[in-house]
Design a protein around this nucleic acid. Sequence first.
DNA 1: CACACAAGTTTCTCCTGTAAACATGGAGGA
DNA 2: TCCTCCATGTTTACAGGAGAAACTTGTGTG
Lengths: 202, 202
Amino acid sequence: MSETNDRPYHHGDLRRALIDTALAMLAANQNWAFTLREVARRTGVSHAAPYKHFRDREMLLRELASIGFVRLGETMTEAMSPARPSTRAQFVAAAQACIAFACQNPGLYRLMFSSDADKTIDPQLHATAMSTFGILVGLLERGQCDGSFRPVAVNALAAASWAQVHGLAMLAISHQLLEEKVGPAPVPAALDVLLDGMCCPD
Amino acid sequence: MSETNDRPYHHGDLRRALIDTALAMLAANQNWAFTLREVARRTGVSHAAPYKHFRDREMLLRELASIGFVRLGETMTEAMSPARPSTRAQFVAAAQACIAFACQNPGLYRLMFSSDADKTIDPQLHATAMSTFGILVGLLERGQCDGSFRPVAVNALAAASWAQVHGLAMLAISHQLLEEKVGPAPVPAALDVLLDGMCCPD
DNA sequence: CACACAAGTTTCTCCTGTAAACATGGAGGA
DNA sequence: TCCTCCATGTTTACAGGAGAAACTTGTGTG
């Protein structure tokens, strides 16, 4: 009972393992209806073990959401980093990266913006989300400096474009951007409409 | 035990009463974490009674979402109906009505677009949601006919504006449109940006 | 080398969703 | 009038889940 049992009493990094299991289940089912006990079971520990690392089920969900924001931020930063011909092109790339992220991780993306990952009760999560939002603001500020975007309050631009991108992502996840309903390339089309309003007339 | 008991064995319209209770709890807590048993309890019936009217808990949630779409549609239609100076003004009114609805019913609005009200498994709900979406499409079509909006695929316009309005609503609900961050009137500002891209240059 | 503490496990209670069997009372036919 | 059916209630039962409490195990540190 104690010899070749390859599961030592102490797991080593159970916290990470639980998060990985939960992320896998989130990706597999595209929802977070899983129970904490199921996560524990699949991770191979007792059902009470998770409580040593997460106060309750919701805290685990907020942790997942936080990871989602970090990954989304990385994705967007990466999409913007290659030398693009213009700030506008950088914006389009970042927006498309965000929407692609949502399509590839629909469960996680939904969780990030759901009330089950309540940002008002978790300063840490709120800060992480704001940091991701800041990537967009930074891009818009640079665009204003180089004359690409209109010199209105940057946060108004940020609200408008964040709303647009997030709205498109949600529509895409909900399969409401079907080609026969909305044309062959709705995302670039919608972004163009927005950018026509955001960019300086030239 | 049977005299002044003002609760007859048969409720009369338990289905409606359960829905009303659930809507009230949704509004009170701004989430749908309530249990079916709690709904039954507050409605004053046994915990199994709801199953005579809803196959399971999710079916009740979808019913609530459906009611939400109907109400949203009414609100938007109403906002558009008074004689407005222009189609553009009608659009702004409808969009603001939608966002106001979301702010006044954040729980319900979230539920309507959550995966717990899965539209892919409920044709009735899907149809109701599409009908509400159709109000927007109708307005855009009229605007194209009278030359207000650019003559591109109407569904592309619909996707762009729906994304924008829905995105703004979600941001507003999440209290991310604070004045100090985003200016005094972010919604009209964002809608203007969008409309500048949607309307015919003139 | 002892031992305190972090990280597991077991056990327990209360609650939920949902199924099944039973009860009730109003509506429609004999 | 009365009987019987059925929709709509209730009671009872059960499988699980959340989370608390008490117990166990090993490991790092004096």
